[in-house]
Design a protein around this nucleic acid. Sequence first.
DNA 1: GGTATCAGCTTGTACCAACAAGTTGAGCAA
DNA 2: TTGCTCAACTTGTTGGTACAAGCTGATACC
Lengths: 261, 261
Amino acid sequence: MMGSMSKQPKYQQVADALRREIDKGTYGPGSRLPSEAELAARFEASRNTVRSGLGLLVSQGLITSSQGLGYEVRKHEIFELNASRFENLNFPQNGDAYSTDVTNAGRRPHQTFRVEVTTMPEDIAQRLRVETGSRAVLRFCHRFVDDVPWSTQATHYPDWLVREAPRLAEPGDVAEGTTRYLASHGIEQIGYADEIATRMPTPDEARLLEIGPGVPVLLWTRTGYTAERPVRCTITTFRGDLNRMNYEIGDLSARNENDAQ
Amino acid sequence: MMGSMSKQPKYQQVADALRREIDKGTYGPGSRLPSEAELAARFEASRNTVRSGLGLLVSQGLITSSQGLGYEVRKHEIFELNASRFENLNFPQNGDAYSTDVTNAGRRPHQTFRVEVTTMPEDIAQRLRVETGSRAVLRFCHRFVDDVPWSTQATHYPDWLVREAPRLAEPGDVAEGTTRYLASHGIEQIGYADEIATRMPTPDEARLLEIGPGVPVLLWTRTGYTAERPVRCTITTFRGDLNRMNYEIGDLSARNENDAQ
DNA sequence: GGTATCAGCTTGTACCAACAAGTTGAGCAA
DNA sequence: TTGCTCAACTTGTTGGTACAAGCTGATACC
């Protein structure tokens, strides 16, 4: 008999076996797993041991659990973001790429706004070449798609810029969009430096984005430059399981002309 | 007394308290936390409860644990990758941006190579506009920095391309670099489509990259185009805790001229 | 029919106990 | 000094128990 030719701990065997069955399709996306008690019987392990194995899969983002309901295989649905186009050009009207992108995808966008006068955190101050702790205006945005939390966006503006463009410090949306508003005051952004990183969410982020365990966040930091200097820094925090960033570099006419799907 | 004005479960209180102390600097990067037994005494909880709280912080990537040693606050050291420059131009000699980037950063690069003849997976086939399951050459690369696993890179080449540039299918490195070799056969890449995503690693990835729990991976998919069609697709898997991707868009002369640190 | 309750399922939290396994340093022996 | 052993720490694994809390459907009641 094949008894215990295994060096691995039992909870890992449980996790591996379930992972294989999920990959194989025995349990498809959205379907429910057997209950802890059933799994305990099947693997001849205690409920605690089975819970350890299931906990592994949860923290790997493969399944979710809900009290009273059971364990469910996570389904993946991702949203594409085109980050390499410019922001300021020919956008129809109010606001940003986000609303148009989401609407074009046939989804319903929704966002809440907040404006604060605060001080520059160190990392932002470095990027904007101003002093840490100097005055700054923070415009914060919490975005939803079909009422599902999608991303948060925090843009810091240095004090010298706010003095030239005072409406940045006023609460509420800037109707024509901040980029256009800045351009009308002679601040034209002609270059962006983007940084992309990933990590596990902080408890705050997990709460705002309603992220379950095992889902990382995607951090997008964009610093906008005029011909002379950096003018603003935007940090967007995405749910990693729902978003993908796209960049186009060089000449991609071969891709875009024949949209052979 | 402030008894139990708390709705939160005890293991969360433990995790929150420790997270605050780590943020505050009570336990700095690299320092050791008190042992489970000490924490149990301090929080008046059982060892299991304390373990649950510590497990949270581990799966959030804030601390690590090693048997016999204890828990340690993770230190963060990130490596910057400039993804927006072209690959083919004026690189000195053998191989890719990776070696030069790492060497310039004063670190020691090291990589292992593997070449396979295989079939096209569905997602790659779509990007390269060939049939799923058709013949493909896979060049796989496992990269280290100072002997620490850093990333894996898998590039798929379609069959039609390999027939024009047969050395792609031969094992071992292409001395002058694949991009240059392709250009010498009339395959000049003039555009790249990049996609960036994140998720928790699969067990295979966790093994290859020696990733602990609570660390996501950063997935970078680059499809190279000639003027006529896509020619190759590279998927790079980075350790999310050690890497950050940078893109430059538009005119950034204001950033690059005065390298005010 | 509509509604309220509740039994019986599910997972979540918390504790206890015992032993396995990795690490370290004290202290003894050669 | 050098090297070995081992006790005393650490976390890892696995079992047990009990109760809390969320969900669902059947049942009884109005």
